[in-house]
């Protein structure tokens, strides 16, 4: 490679200093979470803790109902990820390989759904869910109660289907040779069997990518979860619960505790990302949704 003739010192310097800039905030989070009482916020600033301790982690466990927050986050993330995978793969197969009237129209509709930014939907989604008839104490006309808002399901609902997911799987299902499907049909396999036995295994790489993108987004989602769980603390997710702790009490004292909770909540995603990053990177290149 002629581009790598000599040791590119300047490039190394630039990339490394940029990388330090990217990583230092994470290290500061970890260091702060280990600092002893009165150490954080003290002047002059010190990066390393004087006394390493787990007091902040213990405090996080007592001040936050971390098991509940973790359980809620896991439930919501799992619901969303499984639903997006199933609906994307089914719809993607239909749009790629089945012949039916209105196919182009449906595909164009799917593409159109990707055009609308999420902020358009916060208000109407919230109002529709809170006025859902005969749910959460509501009467037939959606009056009287909280509707569907104070529930785990409501946290997941607006994210259960993803237009981009359908588009992505369709693009991959198209590359499955028709002959394989046709041969299986001649053997008497129904479309559902075809989807389960051929389409799912053949599109595994794209499904892994989609699962990872969906998982990370769902785990990190904040605004919608904040809206839904103000009505009921029992359905709070990790980001909402931690932010609430940060908002309510004196910041300099609680910040280290918040940092400890954040370290715990960020770790699972970071670990997953590092293990499966090849798939994630491909997903970002395919979508650029970020």
């Amino acid at each position: 490679m002629s581009r790598r003739r000599r040791f590119p010192l300047l490039s190394y310097l630039l990339v490394v200093s940029g990388a330090v800039l990217m990583v230092v905030p994470f290290l500061d989070m970890v260091m702060t979470s280990f600092k002893g009482p009165g150490e954080s916020g003290r002047l002059p600033y010190r990066f390393l803790p004087e006394t390493f301790g787990l007091a902040n982690y213990r405090a996080a466990l007592t001040q936050l109902n971390l098991p509940l927050l973790f359980r809620n986050s896991v439930t919501v993330t799992a619901l969303i990820t499984v639903s997006v995978l199933l609906t994307s793969s089914l719809a993607g197969y239909a749009l790629a390989k089945l012949r039916f009237p209105g196919r182009d129209l449906v595909f164009r509709l799917v593409l159109t759904t990707m055009m609308f930014p999420p902020f358009l939907f916060f208000v109407p989604h919230f109002l529709i869910l809170s006025h859902w008839p005969l749910a959460g104490g509501n009467d037939l006309f959606g009056r009287g109660g909280a509707g569907l808002t104070a529930s785990i399901v409501a946290l997941a609902m607006p994210f259960l289907v993803n237009g981009f997911g359908i588009f992505l799987t369709r693009q991959f299902v198209i590359s499955i040779p028709d002959e394989i499907l046709e041969a299986a049909r001649l053997d008497g396999a129904g479309e559902f069997t075809l989807w389960w036995r051929i389409v799912l295994p053949q599109t595994k790489p794209v499904l892994v990518t989609l699962a990872l993108l969906t998982f990370v987004d769902a785990w990190n989602e904040y605004i919608w979860a904040l809206l839904i769980s103000t009505a009921d603390p029992d359905v709070m997710t990790l980001p909402v619960g931690i932010q609430l702790l940060q908002d309510h009490v004196d910041p300099t004292r609680t910040m280290p505790v918040v940092m400890a909770a954040l370290v715990l909540s960020v770790l699972p995603v970071l670990a997953l990302f590092l293990v499966l990053q090849k798939h994630y990177v491909r997903g970002v290149l395919l979508s650029g949704l970020k």
Binding site: G18, P25, F26, P44, Y45, N220, K290
Partner: peptide
């Protein structure tokens, strides 16, 4: 990968870590 870490981190973590770094006793002012 290093440049990508913030992309997979919840906004609550990113926001609070930086808010804390901007404090008088935080890293940036340090």
């Amino acid at each position: 990968t290093l440049y990508f870490l913030p992309m997979v981190t919840t906004v609550v973590a990113v926001g609070n870590v930086w808010k804390y770094m901007y404090e008088p006793g935080g890293l940036v002012n340090g």
